[in-house]
Amino acid sequence: MRYYVTTDPHASAIELVYADVLARHYRLMGARVRFLGGGSPALRPMLSLSYNVFNDSDASTPWYTAGMSPSDYQRWWVSSDARVHVIGESSPQPQLLHSSDTICVCPDLALPEVESWLRKYGSDAVRWWLLRSRVDGQLVPMANKDLHNSLGTFVDRVTGLVHRYRNGEPPPGGNWPSARVAPALARFDFVAATDAVQQLVQDASAYLTQSRPWELADPDEVLANLLAACRVLANDLIPFLPDLATRIAEQCFALSGSLAPARAVYPRLKK
C-alpha cells in the first residue's frame, strides 16, 4: 500500500499533528507513506513531525504536487492507493482524484502561543493536548494526569520491579495485546484512538495491582507480561507521542542483556 498524506500550505499545529499521527500509523501498518505538509518551519522539529517533504509555495496545480518529478507525481499522487488530506474547517476543499481520497477536517485552532508551549513543556504534552482536549488551561494538568501519573508511573513501576527482582534482566516470554487504535484512526477519531491507548495502560495497571508480583515466589511470568505491555505501549504510542514512545522503548528493551538503568519516562510538569 502507498499512502499520500498532505496538509494545507499554512497548516496549524493541530493539522500537522493529525497528519503526522496518520502518516506514522500507516507506516506501522506496513504501508509506504509520503507525508508532505506546510505550516510554520519552526513548528516542524518542535512537534517531532515525520515528514518527507514540505512545500510552502502556492501553485496553480495542487500545491502538494508542485515541483514533483513526473515519475514521483505518477507514483505518489496518481498511483497511490490512498490520499488523505488534513485540512482546517475553513480551508477550501482539495482536489479529489479518486474515490479512495479522504479528507480529515480539523478544528480551526489559532494558537499563537504554541511555540512557547513546545519550548516549555515539550512535544509530548502539546501533542497529547491537541489530540485529546484543547481546553484552555488543561495542557499541564492533562499531561501530568495521563502521561505522568498513569502511563509514566506504570512503566516506571514495571521496570523498577524487573531491576529489583531480576537485576534488570528481562524474564523470558510475555504477552500483551495491542491497543485497538486502527478502527478509530480509520474514521479520524483521535480521541477514541488515544482512549484505546489509555485503556491499555489501565488494563495493564490493574493486572499489576491484582497479580502483586512482589508477593509471588516466582514473579517471572507476571513480570514478563507486564514488560510485554510496556513494549506494546511503546509501539502503540509511536503515532501519537513519538518522543515518549522512544523513551519507553529505551527503558523496556534490553540491548545488552539487561534493561537500561531505571529513570522516569515522563517527569511531572510544572506550570
Rank of each mutant, 00 (worst) to 15 (best):
S91G: 00
D8C: 05
S123W: 04
Y121E: 02
A192C: 02
L244H: 07
E15R: 08
Q199E: 12
A59Y: 13
Q138A: 13
G168P: 04
V158P: 07
A42D: 15
M46C: 05
H148F: 14
D156T: 12
Q198H: 13
Y64N: 11
S71W: 11
R132D: 04
L130M: 08
P219F: 05
P92R: 11
G152A: 06
L43Y: 05
D220N: 14
S100Q: 12
S123C: 12
L233I: 02
C104T: 01
S150H: 12
E169A: 14
L161K: 08
P45K: 09
L151I: 03
Y3M: 12
V181G: 00
G137V: 06
F54T: 15
Y4L: 13
I87W: 07
R27A: 12
L96M: 15
P62F: 06
W128E: 10
Q210D: 15
P261M: 08
G67T: 06
P239W: 03
R24L: 06
Y4S: 02
Y64L: 03
A260H: 12
V197Y: 01
F253E: 12
T6S: 14
G257C: 05
V222W: 01
E221M: 10
V201S: 03
T7L: 05
S40H: 08
A192W: 01
N55P: 00
P141M: 07
E89Y: 10
H25Q: 11
Y51E: 15
K120V: 07
V114N: 09
A13D: 06
G137I: 08
R157T: 08
R180Q: 14
V105F: 05
T102Q: 15
H148M: 01
A262C: 09
H98G: 00
N149K: 11
S80G: 10
N167W: 10
K270V: 15
P177M: 04
S91W: 11
L36G: 01
A249T: 02
S99R: 14
G174Q: 09
W176I: 01
M68N: 01
R157L: 09
V222I: 14
V33R: 02
G37W: 00
H85P: 03
H98M: 11
A206E: 14
L151R: 01
V33I: 03
V162L: 07
R268Q: 15
L111K: 04
E113M: 08
A125L: 07
L96V: 05
W63Y: 14
S150Q: 13
E221R: 15
Y4I: 00
V135H: 11
D189S: 03
R24A: 10
A179F: 04
I248D: 04
L255F: 11
D56I: 08
P9C: 03
V162Y: 09
Y26D: 02
T61Q: 14
A193R: 00
S60R: 13
G152Q: 07
D8K: 02
A23P: 05
V84Y: 00
S256W: 08
G137N: 07
D8M: 10
D203T: 13
V222N: 05
V158F: 09
E115F: 03
R44C: 01
P70A: 10
L269N: 03
E250Y: 09
D81R: 06
F190H: 00
S90M: 06
Y26T: 00
R164C: 02
T61N: 09
